[in-house]
């Protein structure tokens, strides 16, 4: 009887399986430290590469350029605080393909600039400030062609009516709807109803200006949309 009781108890406990938690092999402290250092180096290198790719600039019209705390207003109307360091911040002017160094006093209210440097929220610590030409790019439909004074009226999607002076220096091109290549054209080819993509030199001090001399125009004939 005693034997059978013992046998049954042993049988019951043999049915229960307990999980075994194996211990992972222990690496040497030195090897582990080297691995950690390598991983950290890789992470730092990745981060540096990522930051390089994300290097950005902000642009806007100078609203305040007094002392070391400037304010610029970007294309969306957002005010951006710019911190200038008298010894570290470099200032340049861009004209064509050349940059010339400027002094802090050379930049005035109303100038169009772009700033490079670390950006936090709506503040940027300026490493470099560049005074540049403001360009405005837009598209719309030609609503009027006046051959007497070589102007065209362009109505944009947001219902702004621009008057553009077409001068001999204006780069005028039209889409060939068969080849989808661009062709040089003259003023006589411009007609009402065509779509047009325009580049003009903007006026940073007058954002509501609607008359410009066109730098470049690209015409998409209305026939393209009727195909």
């Amino acid at each position: 009887m005693k034997y059978s009781l013992t046998a049954i108890t042993v049988l019951c406990f043999s049915l229960v399986t307990f999980p075994v938690f194996a211990q992972s092999p222990i690496s040497t402290p030195e090897g582990s430290l080297n691995e950690e250092v390598d991983k950290l180096k890789e992470k730092v290198a990745e981060k540096v590469e990522e930051l390089k790719k994300k290097e950005q600039a902000v642009s806007g019209v100078v609203e305040v350029a007094e002392g070391n705390d400037w304010v610029i207003v970007d294309a969306d109307g957002t005010k951006i605080n710019v911190s200038i360091d008298e010894t570290l911040t470099e200032l340049f002017d861009i004209a064509g393909t050349k940059t010339t160094e400027l002094k802090q006093d050379d930049i005035e209210k109303g100038d169009y600039v772009f700033v490079t440097g670390p950006e936090i929220g709506e503040s940027i610590t300026a490493n470099e400030v560049y005074r540049d030409q403001l360009y405005v790019v837009f598209s719309g439909k030609i609503t009027n062609v006046t051959s007497e004074d070589y102007t065209i009226n362009v109505l944009t999607v947001d219902k702004t009516n621009y008057v553009l002076d077409i001068e001999t220096k204006t780069d005028q091109k039209m889409l060939n709807i068969k080849t989808l290549e661009t062709e040089k054209i003259g003023f006589s080819k411009l007609k009402e109803g065509d779509s047009v993509h325009v580049v003009v030199k903007g006026n940073p001090e007058n954002k509501s200006q609607t008359r410009f001399t066109a730098d470049r125009i690209l015409v998409i004939p209305n026939e393209y949309f009727l195909q």
Partner: peptide
């Protein structure tokens, strides 16, 4: 790209 700021408009018809 030109030196400085480049404003590029991308339009799709």
């Amino acid at each position: 790209l030109a030196l400085g700021e480049n404003v590029i408009q991308i339009s799709v018809y």
